[in-house]
Amino acid sequence: MRPYDVSELEAYVDGELDAVRRAELAAWLARHPEAQAVAETLRYQNAGLHAIFGKLLHQPVPPRLRAALHREPSESAKRLGHLPLIWVVAGGLLLVASALIGWLAHGYSFGRSMHEDQLAAFVESMQEATTFCDVAEESGGDNGFLISQEEEHPFLQAEGASGLRLLEARMLSGKKGLSTVLLFSDEQGRHISLFIQSRDLEEEQAPQLIEEDGINYFLWSDGPLSCTLVSPASV
C-alpha cells in the first residue's frame, strides 16, 4: 500500500474516500500509530467544532425569520429575485448607449466644457466595456443634446425588453466629468433612465437596488463605468 499523505487522511476522516480505499487506509492506520494520531487529531478538530458550536442550533428562532417564509417577499426582494432580467435590460441599454455614443460622438464637437481628448477616452472606455456593475447618480449641468427621437430598437426587443423605445440621449457635464443619460419609454409609457459616467476605479461598489418613493435605482459598476438605471418601482 502506498504511504499516506495528510490530504488523504483528511479525506478519510471527512468520509470522502470510497469503501475500498477507506478499508485499506483503516488497516494501514492500525499498523502505524503516528499516522493514527494524526487522524485522531483531525477527528478531534471536527468533533470539537460540533461541541463548541452545537448549542447554537438550539436557540429559539426569532418570529421574523419564520414569518419571512409565510409572507409575500418584499417588493425590493422581488426585484432582486429577478435580477437576471434587470441585468439583461441594463446590459442591453448599456450596449445601445455605447453604440449610440460611439456613433454620435464621431465628429461631435462639444465646444463647451468637454475636451475632445476626454470625450474620446470616454467613448473608448464605453466601447470596451463588456460587463456591467454599479451606479452613481450625479449629473451636473445640462448640456450636449445628442438625440431626441422615438424609434424601436431591435436589440432590446430581442433580449426581452420588448417595447422599450429610446426617447432621447443627452451628454451632461458635471462635477465628475462627462456623463450620458438615455431616456427610454416602455409600452405603458413609463420612463426608464440610464445614467452612465466614468468612475473612480478605487471605489468598489457592489450591485445595489434601492427603492425610494416608488422609484427603483439599480446601481452597478465595472471597470471604468458607473451606471444607474432609474425606473418606477412598478416596472
Binding site: L65, A68, L69, P73, S74, A77, L80, G81
Partner: peptide, 15 residues
C-alpha cells in the same frame, strides 16, 4: 446574522 438569514430566506423563496 438574523438580517442575513432573513435576506437568504426571501431570496431562496424567489429562486
Amino acid at each position: 446574522a438574523d438580517d442575513l438569514v432573513q435576506d437568504t430566506l426571501e431570496r431562496a423563496l424567489l429562486r
